[in-house]
Amino acid sequence: MTRKKFFAALAVTGLITGCATMMSDADISKKALLVMKSSFKEKGQAKLDRLDQDEVQATCSLYETPDKVPKDVAQRLEQSQLETIRYPADGQLLGNWKAGEVVAQSGVGKQYNDDPTRPSGGNCYACHQLSKQEVSFGTIGPSLLGFGKARGNTEESRKYAYGKVYNSDAFSACSNMPRFGHNGILTEQQIKDVVALMLDPESPVNK
C-alpha cells in the first residue's frame, strides 16, 4: 500500500468511527488536519499540501518528545530513513568551509515570503553553537564546537556528517533537525560545504 493510500484509508476509518460522545485522540488528529486545511491558505511557494505528513512526520507527531518514541518504532524509522540517503556520485564529501559558513548563517528558504529561485540556508546557528566568534547561537541542538577536532577529518566522519545533514532521522528518529537533503532544502554542494565547515581543520568550528 502506498503512503497516500494508507493515510486515505486511515481518514475513511476515522469518518466511520467518528463518535457521538468523546472523540478519540486519533479522531481528534484527523479533525485537526481538516480544520487546518480550511484555516490555512496557499501563499507563495507554501501550498496546502505542506500540511500533509509523510510516515516520519505522522509517526513522530504521536509522541510529545523524541525520547518518548518507543525503541522499536525509532529503529524502524531510522532504518527507513537511512535508505533515503544519497551520497554524491563523485564520492567527494568535503566542500568549502567558507561556503559552509554562509549556509550555516542563512535562515532564508522555503518560507512563503522567500524567493524560491534563490538558495536556501541551513540556519545551523539558530540551534547549534559552531564557532567561537559567533556568539549568537541557539541551544535547541547540541554544541558542535570542535566537532572535527574530536572526530578527525576521516572518511568515516565525513560520511556520518553528510548523512546526518542529509537526513537526521536516520541517526536519531524524530530529531528536531530538518532532513536537509531528503526534503530538498539544501543542495548536494551545500551539504558538502557544511561537512567541510564541520570537519576542515581550517574551519572556525575546529579552531
Binding site: M23, D25, I28, S29, K31, A32, L33, V35, M36, A46, R50, L51, D52, Q53, V56, Q57, C60, S61, L62, E64, K110, D169, P178, R179, N183, G184, I185
Partner: peptide
C-alpha cells in the same frame, strides 16, 4: 484538543511543529 493536536503536528519541508 484540536489545538493540542496542532501543537504536535509536524509537517512541511522542515518537519517543524
Amino acid at each position: 484538543r484540536i489545538g493540542k493536536a496542532m501543537f504536535f503536528h509536524r509537517a512541511g519541508p522542515h518537519d517543524f511543529g
